[in-house]
């Protein structure tokens, strides 16, 4: 990788002060370090959030589950609190990458990176999460702006994410056989009366599937989504999956998610 200057700030404020120009924040590093190794990214400075106190941890109060930005995927996957409040969130965290990657990768890192094939953004959007940063709060619907872009400004650092506890929910993922990222992942969350359906992997960024939400809001059952076709327009198309195939998978994964949520 290219040379850089390494920083180990003691606080979020210190980190934010360093985060300017070509500097990059380092959370778990499971994406960033790879990108740097391949010399696809060459930050001038690396600001390691790993030693900042209080950025990691899980709190659950019955209404929401709050995950600290530096909480590792493995902690979320194995957390008794998360499994009790939102089992689908624990399951999603347990599907990211592989077990070694989950031991390092973080919730905040994944969300800030907003990879179009990442899993966490689906949970954030479907569970109507609130993203808290050193500068304020964002509603999920206003956070993801497109491929690899979010509402985060310069020097803005995610500190935690609060996921609303649904009545029931499930995440189904159709993995890219090689990379294990989502070709299509669908997170369905029933809040009793209102249903949110978030789709990752299929498009340039995570999105909500309004037709499915409406149908499931009327009746939370697999058959409600089984015949809803996802539009192909604007979906990703690559050697692993065409837009047509992805669109088809959105319906299949959504139906299976509903089935799983009802189990």
């Amino acid at each position: 990788m290219h040379a850089f200057k390494y920083h180990r700030p003691a606080s979020v404020n210190d980190a934010a002060a360093l985060a300017k120009g070509e500097a990059k924040l380092l959370a778990g590093g499971q994406t960033l370090v790879q990108t740097m190794k391949l010399r696809l990214a060459s930050p001038s400075d690396i600001i390691d959030l790993g030693t900042i106190k209080d950025l990691a941890g899980i709190k659950s109060d019955g209404k929401s589950v709050t995950v600290g930005a530096m909480t590792r995927h493995a902690e979320v996957a194995h957390s008794a609190d998360v499994k009790k409040a939102i089992p689908a969130l624990a399951a999603l965290a347990g599907m990211i990458g592989d077990r070694q990657v989950r031991a390092m990768g973080t919730c905040g890192g994944s969300i800030a990176n907003n990879d179009p094939a990442a899993d966490y953004p689906a949970a954030v959007l479907a569970l109507n999460a609130t993203i808290t940063t050193n500068k304020g709060k964002y509603e999920a619907d206003k956070f993801f702006k497109g491929m690899f872009t979010t509402a985060l400004g310069a020097g803005e650092i995610i500190t935690s994410v609060s996921f609303q506890v649904p009545k029931r929910a499930a995440y189904t993922k159709f993995k890219n056989p090689a990379s294990r990222f989502a070709i299509v992942g669908v997170f369905v969350a029933d809040f009793g009366g209102s249903v949110r359906v978030a789709v990752t992997g299929a498009g340039p960024a995570v999105f909500r599937q309004a037709d499915m939400e409406k149908a499931l809001g009327a009746k939370f059952a697999p058959e409600s989504v089984a015949n809803i076709k996802q539009k192909q327009d604007g979906l990703n198309s690559d050697m692993h999956a065409s837009a047509e195939y992805r669109a088809h998978l959105v319906t299949v994964m959504a139906r299976r998610a509903v089935e799983a949520a009802l189990r």
Binding site: L26, Q34, K37, G50, A103
Partner: peptide, 25 residues
């Protein structure tokens, strides 16, 4: 690309990929 796992070591009791971690971390 952090797929193969040949570099797996235990760090603070957890298996991690040492090719995806800066020494400084």
């Amino acid at each position: 690309t952090a797929q193969c796992g040949a570099c797996t070591v235990s760090m603070n009791g957890k298996a991690v990929k040492s090719c995806s971690i800066l020494a400084m971390q």
